[in-house]
Amino acid sequence: MTDDEQLFAGNLVSKRLLRVTTSWHVSGEAEPSLLHLWLHLEGLGPVHFHTPGTGLSLRTGRPPGPYSMERYGDVVVVDDPPDVPVTRFLGEPIRSAREIRYRDAHGDFPAGLTLRFATGSVRLLALDDDLLLAHDQHLGPVEAHLHEDTVLARVVQTCGECPSQWDAWTTSGQYLYLRYRHGEGSVEQHPSEDCDTWDGEESSLWTQWDDGTDGGHIELADFLAAAGLRLAPDAQVSPG
């Protein structure tokens, strides 16, 4: 990886979180506002999260030197801040990194990511040019416009064990390949169930974890719980 290289959500999956660096804008008596976030990930180095305008940007690169005070005012840089939600996951690998979209009558754009770890999750959001970290709190009216494609409308099992695997489609029509073998679970996004379509830019890794059991069989309900997916109330589930 080189500095300032663009990254995508799939690049983060399975990487262990080693350190968190934040920079805050401090002005008078106002609450400090988060300017930038760096997640130091095993095998990737520092990953810079910020909002250059609309949406969330992910790029490689270490925290820079002093900021321009004329542009930002007073800036404080803090390593592993205890009150930032993502810091509680230090030492854990990222189990999944999934896009959050903002949708309203005026448009539809990628607004952030949900990062899932074994012990919980955190949302990284870029809204109105502000970088927000949300753990389990409700963000008010904006929640109605935030959408994550994690609900399955149809699931077809293609193998029972060694591996346990399924073809699945979300309620938005996205195809997912679900697989569990040797205790390792994964969710991959592809254009379709046709393997010949799996080598392009539309394919990416959504989720990966290792439960340490070396098992080859898992029930669908247990797989979905581990992967952070769920069935729609009227989902079609077929044994294949």
Score class of each variant (00 low, 15 high):
Val76Ala: 06
Leu7Ser: 03
Gly107Asp: 07
Lys15His: 15
Val156Ser: 08
Ala226Ser: 14
Glu143Ile: 07
Ser14Leu: 14
Pro46Met: 00
Gly240Ala: 08
Gln165His: 13
Leu58Cys: 15
Ala126Val: 11
Arg59Met: 13
His50Phe: 15
Leu18Ser: 13
Ser204Ile: 02
Ala118Gln: 14
Met69Gly: 12
Pro81His: 07
Ser164Leu: 09
Asp149Leu: 06
Ala227Gln: 09
Leu220Phe: 14
Leu132Trp: 15
Asp196His: 12
Pro93Arg: 08
Leu205Pro: 00
Leu115Pro: 05
Ser96Cys: 05
Ala111Val: 04
Leu17Cys: 03
Leu58Pro: 11
His50Arg: 02
Glu219Met: 05
Val155Ala: 04
Cys162Ala: 15
Trp198Asp: 04
Tyr67Ala: 15
His145Trp: 03
Arg179Leu: 14
Asp130Tyr: 11
Gln6Val: 10
Ser186Ile: 02
Gly43Ser: 06
Gly28Cys: 01
Glu99His: 05
Ala111Thr: 05
Thr87Val: 09
Asn11His: 07
Gly200Glu: 09
Arg88Asp: 11
Ser238Leu: 14
His106Thr: 09
Phe49Ser: 04
Ala105His: 09
Val142Pro: 01
Ala221Pro: 02
Asp4Cys: 02
Leu90Ser: 10
Val156Gly: 02
Leu229Ser: 09
Ala232Leu: 08
Gly43Pro: 01
Val86Tyr: 00
Phe89Gly: 04
His48Ser: 10
Ser68Thr: 06
Ser192Tyr: 11
Gly185Asn: 12
Gly91Ala: 09
Arg98Asp: 14
Thr51Lys: 00
Cys195Ala: 12
His190Ser: 03
Arg59Val: 14
Thr60Trp: 02
Val156Trp: 01
Leu35Asp: 09
Asp104Pro: 09
Asn11Asp: 15
Asp74Gly: 05
Asp108Gly: 05
Thr150Ser: 14
Tyr175Ser: 13
Ala235Trp: 05
Ser164Met: 08
His135Tyr: 10
Ser203Leu: 01
His145Leu: 01
Gly240Asn: 03
Gly183Ser: 12
Gly185Ser: 15
Asp4Trp: 04
Pro239Val: 13
Ser33Cys: 05
Phe89Trp: 03
Pro93Phe: 10
Arg123Phe: 12
Leu90Val: 12
Leu17Gln: 03
Asp104Gly: 05
Gly65Cys: 06
Gly120Asn: 11
Gly73Gln: 07
Pro82Met: 13
Leu115Ala: 11
Ala232Glu: 10
Arg230Lys: 11
Glu31Leu: 13
Gly28His: 07
Val20Leu: 03
His50Pro: 00
Leu115Met: 08
Glu42Gly: 06
Ala126Phe: 14
Gly160Leu: 11
Leu18Met: 15
Gly215Thr: 04
Asp83Phe: 08
Asp74Arg: 11
Glu193Arg: 08
Gly91Pro: 02
Arg88Pro: 00
His36Trp: 09
Leu125Pro: 02
Trp38Phe: 00
Trp169Arg: 07
Asp214Leu: 05
Cys159Pro: 00
Tyr67Leu: 15
Ala30Tyr: 11
Ser238Asp: 11
Glu5Phe: 15
Arg181Leu: 07
Asp80Pro: 03
Gly107Arg: 05
Gly212Cys: 04
Ile218Ser: 03
